[in-house]
Each structure stands twice: as C-alpha cells, then as structure tokens.
Amino acid sequence: MPVRILESTSKRAYVHLLTDGKYLPGVLVMHKSHLDTKSRYSFVVMLTPGVDQSVRAALQSRGIIVKDIEYLRPPASKHQLNDYDKRFSETWAKLRVFELVEYERVILRDIDMLLLKNMDDLFDLSIPHDHIAATHACSCNLMKFRHYPSDWVPANCPYTPLTWPSCLDRATAVTKNSPRCHHLLNGGLVLLHPSLEMARHIQNALYTSPQIRKYRFPDQDLLADVFKNKWVPLPYVYNAMKHMRIAHKDIWRDADIKCLHYVMDKPWQYRPLPPSATSGVQRETQLSTTLASCKAGGSLLEGAAMRRIQQEFDELVHHWWAAFDELELEMSGSEHWDVIEENVNRHPVSVFNAN
C-alpha cells in the first residue's frame, strides 16, 4: 500500500519528541491516526542525539518531518527523580519546541497517544502570544502512588467539579482561590507559539530556578510555573488520560474523545488478552505481574482494585492494537519493519521496563 505523505505549507504543525527507539511503535501509530483523522497540518518529530539511523529511516519512510535537536536538562545537582519516574528524565527536551520558530503555532503532543477524532480546530483557539493552552493534570492519584503529593486527592482534582456534557467544551476555571492542583497542567498536549525569547526564558528557569529540585513531573511542572496565570485550560477530550475513564467516569464517554493518552505503561509493551480469557490463568498471571510492577513503583493499590483498573485499561489498549494491526498491513513487507517489531511486545505480560 503506498504511503500517504501529508505535507503542509501552513505555519502550523503538530510536534512530538522521540529520544529512544523503544518509542518508535508509538510514534508510527500516532502518525497513522493523524492521517486517518485527516489532519490538515504537518506531523513533526524532534529527534535527540543517539537515536539510531534505522529509527530515523523508518520515520522518514512514512513522510514524517524530522527535526534534530539537542538534549535539554537541568544541572544534575538540581534535580533527581525516583527510580519509577526516571522515564521523565529526557522529557525536558520537549521544551525545545519553543525554538521551532519556522512555525507560528504548534501543538506539542506526547507519542503515547491515539487520535480518535480530528482536532485541528484547536489551532484556531484564541490565546495571547505569551500564553499556552493545555489540559489540567488529573490529581486524583488513582494508582495510589505513595510518592505523589499529599494533596493529590479527588476533592482537589480540577475534573471533579465538571459535569457532562458541558465538560466537552469547557474546563474548570483557575482563580487565585483555586486549590493548588487546579494550577497544574498536563504536558501531554500543549498549544503554543514558538519564540526564541520564550525559549531563552524557559531555559533560564531550568538552569536557575530553585523550584526545579521540587518538580515530580519535569517539563509540565516547569511549564506550570513559567506560565502561571498565563495558560488556558482545555476540555479534557483533547488529552484524555486513560485513568480518567475510571477516576472521572461521570464525564467520560468513549465516543467524545478526540485524543486518548496512554499515561504510565505504554500500549505497545503488552497486548491485552481477549475477553474470552478474562477468567483464565493467563489473566491472573497478567494481573499479578501488573500489581507487582505497581507495588515496585510505590503504589498502595490492592489486588481487587488493580483487577478492576487493569480491565478498564485493557479495553482502551485494544484500540491502540487495532491501529497497530492496520499499520502492520501497510509496513510489514518493508525494510523498516524489523526495527518496529523489536520494540513491540505481543504478549499479555509485559517484558519491557514499565518506563
């Protein structure tokens, strides 16, 4: 099947970061869903040094625009992550997006996402040039991680006050009297205006701010500080984090979602068992492995709660694998398939690092 190359002369682009070949399946499925939802704008991937040439070739074979960038990190003495959250150690580089001044407007997106509906309308949102737009962070702490802030509880979550269907076109307003958690954004999707002046301002904060050592979620905590009172909350459907399907079931409707965000474990790290296996030994083995992984990461969840959550997550992960199966039909005969296949786990129990 010929590859659909989507070039755009627009000054608008969707931008993504890739730092390691193990995330290649996520990028390519994300790109496929970008094409399938008929976006009018370019799909750009920022590559850090050290990404293998075979990964670059696979991206370019799909018509993806590649931008080479340098790493971006605070001084080692200023910021440390616990073992479970070391997956965030390279995400500072996402902030290089502000240097892409060849574009007037950019939507920065994570690559552990799946587009279910066209979201080009977001580019038309009116925000001041020195502002950004993003969805709130969900501060319910569904997985009960003991190292998360103590005020991360449902009562303080900005999604808790929302109701359906008004949640589809509005978010909880942030005021000076709002709980601290209402001021936190999720960095998985950010609408912004690239600017070298802003890039320098952000990097200066990264290198000099005393707040850096307190950040648990690197790039998004920095953005929340730099753009305090200068970010516009977006409806959750533009960045629907998978755990919200459980934590905020009153507002979640699968049919409403534009962009599904697979936070934490990535969908290409395991293939969920079919419903026919939900009561079998394999299912219990998968749940036991997942629970052990969560415990190692500091979760206080017990078996019954984890079983319910895992079953909900699996339903969403099936969507990703359906898109991957279609991608395989398009690419399996190509010279690039091996590098994709080696980073995918088709088994129900993950053999990859949960990061």
Rank of each mutant, 00 (worst) to 15 (best):
V226F: 00
Q310E: 11
K266M: 11
L223F: 05
V317C: 10
K214A: 13
H243Y: 14
S209P: 14
K242G: 05
L191Q: 04
D219G: 00
Q220F: 03
Q211S: 13
M264Q: 12
M198I: 12
K249F: 04
G303L: 15
H193Q: 08
A205Q: 12
D314M: 10
N239D: 06
V232P: 02
G297N: 04
Y215Q: 06
V190F: 06
K214T: 15
G298D: 10
Q311L: 11
N239R: 00
F313M: 12
Q311N: 11
E315K: 15
S293A: 06
Q220W: 01
D219F: 05
H319C: 13
L327A: 07
I257H: 03
A322C: 06
S293T: 12
S288H: 09
H183M: 07
V281Y: 09
V317T: 12
A292C: 10
W268Q: 07
L316Y: 08
Q286Y: 02
H193C: 08
R308Y: 07
I251H: 06
Q269V: 10
L301A: 05
C259W: 02
F324G: 02
L191A: 04
L191E: 02
I246V: 14
A304F: 07
R213S: 15
D225F: 05
M264R: 13
K230Q: 11
L260Y: 08
T208D: 09
H243I: 15
R283M: 15
H193M: 07
L316R: 09
Y236G: 03
M264K: 11
Y236P: 01
H243T: 15
I251G: 03
V281G: 00
V237G: 02
A255D: 06
P194I: 03
H183N: 11
Q203N: 12
D225G: 09
H319Y: 14
A255E: 05
A323P: 15
Q220A: 00
L184I: 10
G303N: 03
V317L: 06
L291R: 02
W252E: 04
L222A: 03
L191T: 08
Q269M: 14
H248Q: 10
P267E: 07
P235Y: 01
I251S: 05
H182Y: 14
P210G: 00
H182G: 04
Q211C: 11
L327P: 15
M241E: 09
W268P: 03
L223D: 01
R307E: 11
L234M: 11
T285H: 13
W231P: 00
L223M: 10
D325K: 13
L206R: 01
A205W: 08
I212E: 03
A296R: 15
P218E: 02
Q211M: 12
L327R: 04
P272K: 07
D254L: 13
D256F: 03
K266A: 13
L300F: 04
L184G: 00
D256M: 04
P272H: 10
Y215L: 02
R308S: 06
Q310I: 00
A277N: 02
T208N: 12
A224R: 03
F324C: 11
A305C: 05
P194Y: 01
M198K: 13
G303M: 09
L189Y: 04
H201G: 10
K242Q: 06
L222W: 01
F313G: 02
A305D: 15
Q286M: 10
G187F: 01
K249I: 08
H182T: 13
N229F: 09
F217L: 05
L206Q: 01
K295N: 08
A304V: 15
N204Q: 09
G297Q: 06
S195D: 07
G303I: 14
W320G: 00
D250T: 13
